[in-house]
């Protein structure tokens, strides 16, 4: 049960219940669809990118608690950030999720995203935690086709 508590932390459950930046934004100039065919998680990420700055970001869709909370926390973390910084954070986040379970977590770099460290115990759920991020990345790099985790 302790691994479960690690996974389903209060903050994750809370963001699942009341996700931040949920819905469409009128001013969006980038929209990207993301899809996890294995489990049917499906979301859209909307961004307003101005120069190299992510000024606005939101998401909508359906998914498990992990994917929804990760999307919600992502929007909170990178809203107002330079694109390069957002991509770098994704890089660190991804590394953390796929690292060995006992590897120390770099809280400073990851900020709130560090609470997803518990996902490492559940390799099948890594894709849930990264779906929104992959989608955001494709959007800022101006991808056209829907992003798939497979």
């Amino acid at each position: 049960m302790s691994e479960l508590r690690e996974l389903y932390q209060e903050i994750i459950l809370e963001h699942n219940k009341t996700p931040r930046n949920f819905g469409k934004i009128e001013t969006a100039n980038r929209t990207q669809e993301g899809y996890n065919p294995l489990c049917g998680d499906h979301l859209h990420v909307h961004l307003y990118v101005n120069g190299d700055q992510i000024e606005e970001i939101s998401f909508e869709g359906s998914g498990c608690a992990i994917s929804k909370a990760s999307a919600s926390l992502m929007t909170a973390a990178i809203k107002g950030a330079p694109v390069a910084e957002a991509l770098e954070l994704f890089e660190h986040f991804h590394q953390m999720l796929t690292a060995e379970v006992d590897e120390p977590v770099d809280d400073e770099r990851l900020g709130k995203m560090a609470i997803f460290a518990g996902v490492r115990e559940f390799p099948m759920r890594v894709k849930c935690a990264t779906l929104a991020w992959h989608t955001m990345k494709a959007a800022v790099l101006d991808g056209q086709d829907p992003v798939s985790t497979e």
Binding site: M1, E3, L4, L7, Y8, C39, D41, S62, G63, C64, A65, I66, K68, F122, M124, R125, C128
Partner: peptide, 13 residues
Amino acid sequence: DIHPHDIGTILDA
């Protein structure tokens, strides 16, 4: 409104 994946993970535990 709990997502089936979350249910599956908790049952697995």
